[in-house]
Design a protein around this nucleic acid. Structure first.
Length: 417
RNA sequence: GGAGGAGUGCCCGAGUGGUUAAAGGGGACGGACUGUAAAUCCGUUGGCUUAGCCUACGUUGGUUCGAAUCCAACCUCCUCCA
């Protein structure tokens, strides 16, 4: 990797964000010379982004920190089509209502990382539905469609792979990359966006936008992609402990979010510290070089720093303290995630199986039963072997809660309400 | 439009009339070992009021004592021909 002159690219490079850049020196000069506006698109396929999207958000964060203007693009329009890049089959079409509510959910997260506003360096959030929805098909074909070569689009890896595997690609999906290319050009016109960033799977889509820009006479546009994130053992990022690592607090508590990062594989600690925290690189390399069990300290720092960026310093430290009490002291941490159960229900007694389901530790009574049979369930730290065990007010601890555990790591407090 | 092939559980993939809730693998979850890690080993992996019942092999019907397995129509995808 060459030495970059601009702060932004230097940081991106040092911290491991860069996979490919369309024109390194050209982009570097641009960043060194003026305030650059760059965007990343987020498709509203779920009510929250998950850990996989964090790397993109961090890029926007660094943009703003180095004096540039980040744009978060909500794919309200493209979400209606669905990105086929590297996908094996078509996604189910989302309804307009779902897309809108997903956008509403996704939006929340950005304010933790970016300052939005109308100033020259304030971040922007825009929705491509704004310009895609009103498009007139024939006009669009003539103005934009004429510039696309199907031959060329078919040659892109993101599409080719699908065709090679003899899986069908609908015309609808095929249009996705054209819309994304159009977005890039439109954002250039509207906000002087010069750069589009994204995951490495977006390379083809971004390049299409650059080409379209050439033909429609925009200034030179640029592409920057991030590496595809996997853990060192090859697993995809963002899934663990029975579900996706959502960024929205109402879908995954700050404590559980903290726990996810706390359980990072040893080999990933340094890489993740660079990508997901803002700690100075010297500190990162010190932490990452800790050997043996000492690296657990680095994992705690990692977890706390990431959580602090997303949910705030206070929530992060609370999560760290909760974990410390639970795992290091073996004490009851009253700040563990909890569920409320009606007092009357507890009075009458509730079966351990349905309590596990209520607590979200099992998705069905059958699964809960298997967990009990497998010896994974504990009630107030006491193993439960009887699947007919009834849980009542008698089980309340002095703190007025019941601790339900599945395995060693998942603990939920049941609170009478 | 014609001919042929395919559609199985979270995913991949066996299975061509009966002990098939369906081999095997992956993933996921639990356990052991550790350091709340990785690797490794073991177990579990449709639902329920669980010695039983219900739902399930693209959809809908049919044949049969009995079907994922046979038949018909339909839907979707693939290949070749036009």
């Amino acid at each position: 990797m060459s030495a970059f002159k601009s702060d932004f690219l230097r940081i991106m490079s040092e911290r491991g964000f860069i996979h490919q850049i369309s024109d390194e020196s050209g982009l570097d000069q641009l960043f060194a010379k003026e305030t650059v506006t760059a965007y990343i698109g987020f498709d509203p396929t779920a009510p929250s982004l998950h850990a996989g999207g964090l790397i993109q958000i961090m890029m926007l964060y660094w943009m703003q920190q180095t004096g540039h203007r980040p744009v978060a693009l909500m794919g309200g329009g493209t979400g209606m089509v669905g990105d086929p890049s590297f996908k094996e089959e078509a996604r189910k079409l989302l309804t307009v209502e779902t897309i809108q509510s997903n956008i509403d959910g996704i939006k929340q997260v950005f304010s933790s990382y970016l300052n939005f506003g109308d100033g020259p360096r304030d971040a922007l959030m825009v929705n491509n539905a704004e310009w895609l929805l009103p498009l007139n098909y024939l006009e669009f074909l003539r103005d934009v469609g004429q510039h696309f070569s199907v031959n060329r689009m078919l040659a892109f890896d993101s599409v080719k792979q699908r065709l090679d595997r003899e899986q069908s690609l609908s015309f609808l999906e095929f249009n996705y990359m054209i819309l994304q290319a159009y977005d890039f050009v439109e954002l250039n016109k509207r906000y002087d966006v010069r750069l589009q960033m994204g995951g490495s799977d977006q390379w083809g889509n971004i390049i299409n936008g650059i080409d379209l820009g050439h033909r429609l006479g925009t200034p030179q546009l640029y592409a920057l992609t991030t590496p595809l994130l996997t853990t060192s053992s090859g697993a995809k990022m963002g899934k663990s402990l029975g579900g996706a690592i959502w960024l929205n607090a109402d879908m995954l508590s700050p404590y559980d979010f903290w726990q996810y990062w706390r359980n990072t594989e040893d080999a990933d600690v340094g890489r993740f510290l660079k990508l997901y925290t803002t700690l100075p690189l010297a500190e990162v390399s010190r932490l990452a070089s800790l050997g043996g069990s000492e690296i657990n300290e680095a994992k705690k720092v990692l977890a706390t720093e990431i959580t602090a960026l997303l949910h705030g310093r206070a929530a992060a430290e609370l999560a760290a303290e909760t974990a410390r009490k639970t795992f290091e002291e073996g004490a009851l941490a009253e700040t563990l995630p909890s569920v409320d159960v009606a007092n009357s229900t507890l009075e009458a007694g509730v079966g351990i199986l349905s309590l596990l389901v209520t607590a979200g530790l099992a998705s069905s009574n059958g699964e809960a039963r298997r967990h009990v049979q497998g010896g994974a369930v504990r009630l107030n730290d006491q193993p439960v072997s009887d699947e007919r065990r009834s849980v009542t007010l008698q089980d309340l601890s002095p703190e007025n809660v019941i601790k339900v555990s599945l395995g060693k790591k998942k603990h939920i407090l049941v609170r009478p309400a």
